[in-house]
């Protein structure tokens, strides 16, 4: 049985203009797999410019990879046609960062839910459509009578974001790509939305790719994590192992920079090296080398992945004594 989703050495470069030779590699040789029968939550983490959103756009089929393939149930998503394309569109859903921008202020929120029901012919009549909507809203913890018929400006950010999740749920997806779903809602509502996402995975069998820069929420919701920096995988593995025992200098910097709500755990003393503007011109080697406090001579050649233990691998020469693995094997060590 083919996997639900498979990325084969996917690379995406953006080139600026027709004549310009400068190009930016947004994603560099990423391979991963999600199994169909084992719904999981995988986090893709990294700072701005690390290629997280590019990955989301690729998965949703909005852009095509420069090289490599993305297979959905064994079929290349850029070549889907007809019925296969429609079912891909239905089964792979997205929740975006900004709950304010996705609503059309002229329509009531019902519009957001009825359009997909009509488009994909999910209901035979109006009553059934309404049942579908109410079911989805209840599943995300909203009371349909409070929500239906209201305009977006009458709802809070947390409610709107949950409606977005409900919209995805109406379509009974198999994969949900959540791009920073909680970065714009209040801390007290964050918990509700994360809980909603987790119950989707547990009770509705939806696999979720959770894209974020917030490692605290990632830790709480995900099983596995992939840390990206400038399009390359820095570290990946079991979320407990990576966050409690980070091995790559970049992951350490990220975790050191989390403002923990804990007075005994101060912000790290480790100096933040280099400004974002520098390091823009980097060579072939490790992308993090210009900012890395441990940069060595060999960092000019790109480091392969070194497997540290059963569920953790890092792309750093500091761990050169560990066995090497090919980037295609990365998803084998991610727990589900």
């Amino acid at each position: 049985m083919p996997d639900l989703l498979e990325l084969k050495n996917v690379t995406k470069t953006y080139s600026r203009g027709v004549l310009s030779r400068t190009s930016t590699t947004a994603l560099n040789d990423v391979s991963l797999k999600l199994a169909e029968n084992e719904p999981t939550i995988m986090t893709v983490a990294g700072e701005s410019g690390s290629g997280k959103t590019t990955l989301a756009m690729l998965l949703l089929g909005f852009i095509t990879p420069t090289s490599g393939q993305i297979l959905y149930q064994g079929q290349d998503i850029s070549r889907l046609s007809g019925a296969a394309r429609v079912s891909f569109r239905r089964e792979v859903q997205a929740v975006f960062q900004d709950p304010f921008a996705v609503f059309n202020p002229f329509y009531t929120v019902d519009h957001l839910l009825t359009v997909p029901i009509k488009k994909f012919k999910l209901a035979k009549n109006k009553a059934e459509a309404r049942d579908r909507m109410e079911e989805a809203l209840t599943a995300v913890g909203l009371r349909p009578e409070d929500i239906l018929g209201r305009f977006p400006h009458q709802l809070s950010g947390g409610q709107r974001q949950r409606i977005n999740v409900a919209r995805a749920l109406v379509l009974k997806p198999k994969l949900l790509v959540a791009d920073e779903p909680v970065s714009m809602v209040d801390a007290s509502l964050r918990a509700n939305i994360l809980e909603t996402l987790r119950s989707l995975q547990r009770n509705h069998g939806v696999s979720i790719i959770y894209i974020t820069h917030d490692l605290t929420t990632a830790y709480h919701i995900a099983k596995s994590i992939i840390v990206l920096y400038r399009g390359s995988v820095m570290e990946a593995g079991d979320v407990d192992a990576v966050i409690k025992n980070p091995q790559h200098p970049y992951t350490r910097l990220l975790i050191d920079s989390i403002p923990w709500p804990d007075l005994s755990r101060r912000w790290g003393e480790t100096e933040i090296k280099a400004r974002e503007s520098e390091g823009a011109s980097h060579g072939e080697g490790c992308k993090f080398a210009p900012r890395c406090p441990f940069a060595m001579e060999q960092c000019v050649t790109p480091p392969p992945l070194f497997q540290l233990n059963k569920h953790q691998a890092t792309s750093c020469y500091l761990h050169a004594t560990s066995p090497q693995i090919a980037s295609e094997q990365l998803s084998e060590l991610l727990p589900v």
Partner: peptide, 16 residues
């Protein structure tokens, strides 16, 4: 507010 904060000790507990 304080008890709704995530920390490393209470993994998977969401308390809104």
């Amino acid at each position: 507010l304080i008890s709704s904060l995530p920390s490393l000790d209470n993994k998977g507990v969401f308390q809104g």
